[in-house]
Design a protein around this nucleic acid. Structure first.
Length: 592
RNA sequence: GCCGGUGUAGCUCAGUGGUUAGAGCGAACGACUCAUAAUCGUUAGGUCACUGGUUCGAUCCCAGUCACCGGCACCA
């Protein structure tokens, strides 16, 4: 009986391209997990989309003198390109600027209102006289009343560290244009988190969450320990989902971005179902059974900056709505640094995906990002390390193993050779293969992707060892039957390794699948399709058919006699000179 | 300032209250030559940030110090 698995991935702001940290922290881990689950025969729904609302989008639009829609149209396609190039297999990567999302968000809002979880409160907003609109506190600065620091931010003084409200600042002004800021009362809807807190605690404490990552759990508990307060979910903005109440006071307000963005997981699932011609199919991942149990396990792949939104606020929204499945796991990742320093968009210290995705093999990028993923703590992208690991691990240990075994076998036999009786060494390697397969399966189930990759590579090393000891290239001349047995064993291990590597390295695994004489798809790839945006204009989405082959995740049973294709290397070795070139490229961007 | 995290071999990272703390890469030496000069073996290399405490025993638990990082709620 296959399980239903929901793979939810953080919604990126459509105000700039991806950098490698986004890929390593969310999209690649999610794809590896989704590919593995599909191979196991489970029914996977993997969704995300571009976050089209929020201040960053509005600001980017104003800065360039274009509309928010044009900002989205600039970056959304770049996300799709990156996913297609790197082979990220979304069932649907859509956007929040769609009629469906507006409808679902409206429905969520009204249902929470009806259930009594939304309340109206008046707050003081920072208002820019020059722009004629309200500003987020972080766009307000002024002189600190405590230490006299002239550039204290609205929420905290960077000089003396004191926390405060923007109203306390002397001569408050907008960081956008330096114009004066005044303060006005403004009424908003708040989600009553205090009212939802008991249900939230019951959910969190109801089962042993020991399988959650320690950091996620700790973070969530600390947030909860402080107690929850109502949180505003509307804003004085003109860009976003309208507040669905019949009240002129809310005509110029919108639902705030963090509320509608998390709803995207749900709305995208509904959009996927409609697109695939089975409009109710989303229910199999979302609607709880009559006994209250979840119909699917849902995993949320996000960065650590997003933890409270996925372990507290989104669950609270779901609880307030009722009858929908809460997160099963939130495998949050830490951050990826670049050459030892934190990536920074403003300093242009970042490795942008569009700048490298076409210059390296996708599996080389996937390998390094997976092997070096920030699973338990911040990790680091270094070009020297990238070249070294790709060359020694991916090319030399794994690629060369596959190539050497295929080369000897193809030249001497042409097909998978018929084995004779197995020797101890043969049985030992095959036993180790079974053990590794089991271990990797358990690690992937627990979303321990790095450890799974390490285990897999260790099996490739064991296979290289076996070949060194058995020396089949000598035996083909002296004992052809024994050489056939050794190569048969080696091929089965390579075939198993192909399966174990395929969630991580889909392109080369598919190729190897064919070299080994199989037909069909082991590692499917996504495609781009047309769709319609909220305003009726054309847009694109990423989707795909990822047919489930229930026998695919298994130790090899490669049959003797299967014809092998003429082998060729799977991976390109990298020239060490490119380390200096890439470093120079990075430095040039910072100077510019 | 408050809360929290991290600090382990040259590099990137695992890990544990208990005999000699691990892996990969890098380094040195050797073997092999089927394979993209790839592979295999051997060796070298660490007061597990620092100080103190608990304990028969601490890299691991506790306290403090230093360094770096994150959160602190209209920032997602």
């Amino acid at each position: 009986m296959p399980d239903n698995i929901l793979v939810s991935v953080a919604w990126p702001y459509a105000n700039g391209p991806f950098h490698v940290g986004h890929v390593a922290g969310a999209y690649l881990p999610a794809d590896i997990f989704a590919r593995y689950q599909r191979l196991r025969g489970n029914r996977v729904l993997m969704v995300s989309g571009s976050d089209c609302h929020g201040t960053p989008i509005t600001l980017a639009a104003e800065k360039e003198g274009i509309s928010p829609q044009e900002v989205i149209q600039r970056y959304h396609p770049s996300f799709l390109k990156t996913f297609q190039t790197l082979g990220i297999t979304f069932d649907l990567f859509t956007q929040t600027y769609t009629a469906n999302h507006y409808r679902v968000t409206t429905d969520m809002f009204l249902r929470l209102l009806e259930h009594g979880y939304l309340i109206r409160q008046t707050m003081v907003g920072s208002y820019s006289e020059s722009l004629g609109r309200f500003l987020p506190d972080r766009f307000v600065e002024g002189t600190c009343p405590n230490c006299g620091f002239p550039r204290a931010r609205g929420d905290q003084c960077d000089n003396c560290g004191q926390l405060r409200d923007p109203q306390d600042l002397i001569a408050p002004r907008s960081t956008l244009d330096g114009a004066p800021v005044t303060f006005h009362d403004t009424e908003h809807y708040f989600i009553d988190l205090a009212k939802l807190e008991p249900a939230l605690r019951a959910w969190l404490d109801g089962v042993d969450r020991g399988y959650w990552r320690a950091n996620t759990l700790l973070f969530t508990r600390n947030w909860l320990r402080e107690g929850l307060r109502a949180r505003a979910i509307t804003r004085d903005l003109e860009w976003g989902v309208p507040v669905p109440v019949d009240d002129p006071a809310f005509k110029d307000k919108r639902i705030y971005v963090w509320f509608d963005a998390v709803i995207g997981y749900f709305s995208a699932s509904i959009e996927w179902a409609e697109r695939s011609g089975a409009p109710d199919a989303w229910k199999e991942w979302w609607v709880c059974r009559p006994d209250g149990s979840a119909p699917a396990r849902s995993y949320y792949f996000i960065g650590k900056d997003n933890i409270p939104f996925h372990t507290i606020i989104w669950p609270a929204i779901l609880l307030g709505y009722g009858d929908l499945a809460l997160p099963y796991d939130v495998p949050a990742n830490e951050f990826l640094n670049l050459e030892g320093d934190k990536m920074s968009t403003s300093r242009n210290w970042a490795l942008w995906a569009p700048e490298i995705e076409d210059r390296y093999q996708p599996d080389a990028l996937r390998y390094y990002l997976a092997a070096n993923a920030p699973e338990t703590r911040d990790s680091n992208w270094s070009w020297a390390d990238f070249v070294q690991r790709v060359n020694s691990e991916l090319v030399a240990t794994w690629g060369n193993l596959a190539n050497r075994v295929l080369s000897i076998t193809h030249r001497n036999y042409g097909v998978v050779p018929q084995p004779g009786d197995l020797a101890d060494a043969d049985r030992q390697l095959l036993a180790a293969t079974g053990q590794t397969f089991q271990a990797v399966t358990e690690l992937l189930d627990g979303v321990k992707l790095k450890a799974a990759l390490t285990e897999t590579l260790a099996l490739a090393q064991a296979a290289n060892q076996y070949l060194s000891e058995q020396e089949p290239w000598k035996m083909v001349k002296t004992d052809r039957a024994r050489a056939a047995t050794v190569l048969f064993v080696a091929l089965r291990v390579v075939d198993t390794l192909k399966t174990l590597f395929s969630p991580f390295l889909p392109f080369s695994s598919q190729r190897l699948h064919e070299l080994l004489g199989y037909q069909g798809i082991l590692a499917p790839q996504p495609r781009i399709e047309d769709a319609i945006a909220f305003d009726g204009t054309p847009r694109t989405v990423l989707t795909g058919d990822y047919p489930v082959d229930t026998g695919a995740w298994a130790v090899s049973d490669l049959p003797p006699g299967q014809a092998l294709q003429s082998p060729a290397p799977l991976f390109q070795k990298l020239d060490e000179a490119l380390v200096a070139e890439e470093l120079e490229r990075l430095r040039a961007k910072v100077r510019a």
